[in-house]
Amino acid sequence: MTVVSVHGLGKSFAGIAAADGMDFDVENGEIFGLVGPDGAGKTTVMRMLAGVMRPDRGSIVIDGIDVLADPEAAKQHLSYMPQRFGLYEDLTVDENIRFYADLFEVSRKLRAERTGPLLAASNMEPFRARLAGQLSGGMKQKLGLICALIHTPRILLLDEPTTGVDPVSRRDFWRILYGLREQGVTILISTAYLDEAERCTRLALLHHGRQRYCDTPERLKAMMPGTLVSFTSRQARAVRDALEGQPGVLGLLLYGDGVRALLDDAAKRVPGLMARLASAGLDSEPPRPAEPGIEDLFVALLKDEES
């Protein structure tokens, strides 16, 4: 069942399109990722979905409700977590939860039933009486999520929820998201972290305000032209510079222990590249095939588009 349906969505600021040509459908129970670098238009799309910003063109239908025609009705079905911490720092954890529960008219009884498990799942139980302003970044995000979930929304919109969050809290956060997915909550998440993108069921890749590709991570990787190989070297930077612009090299990405190169035909190109490195005085093992990540994919696909 399609829960979120976006068609031809666009928004411009002072004549410049912050988002354009957004087209995707999200099925019930998906974790759908909006992936792209800063300035790709992720936040603009999220705000339009949340009904807090009016699109210039296109349509959004959430749970059968036309968001442009009746944003207030759609707000009953969804929860939105903005990128910037939106809770009250001068209110305690409990007071913030209560505030959002009351705004969604959750009864006192239901609030009490839901608060306990949510606090337990996020290891926030000991901090109920602490002011939100005195929580760490990760705990703030978890509190944001608890407040977003207190009215059991059908759809959750998360705008870069894990930016600046420590790894432990990030793991907690994703564990909660998987749990929600099992309960049938549909999640739209934006992220600039490509390792997180791989955890999504489907992705839309955003670049310069436009939607480029939209598919499952696996199928997106399969779209990648050529093959990915990994050169292991202590002089990674020099290796990259030596390989730059060589025939058959579609893309290069620097890693801590070497360089990943995207080649149009690995069997044909590797001997020539090894010779190039040897002549530059750089020692390197023969490259091994590498499993592409979303980051490699992103670089490859965008490079492909530019040429």
Binding site: R47, K75, G86, L87, F104
Partner: peptide, 12 residues
């Protein structure tokens, strides 16, 4: 304080 964005996303 940046609390408005969340507030306007609620049915208030």
């Amino acid at each position: 304080r940046g609390t408005m964005e969340l507030l306007v996303s609620t049915p208030v």
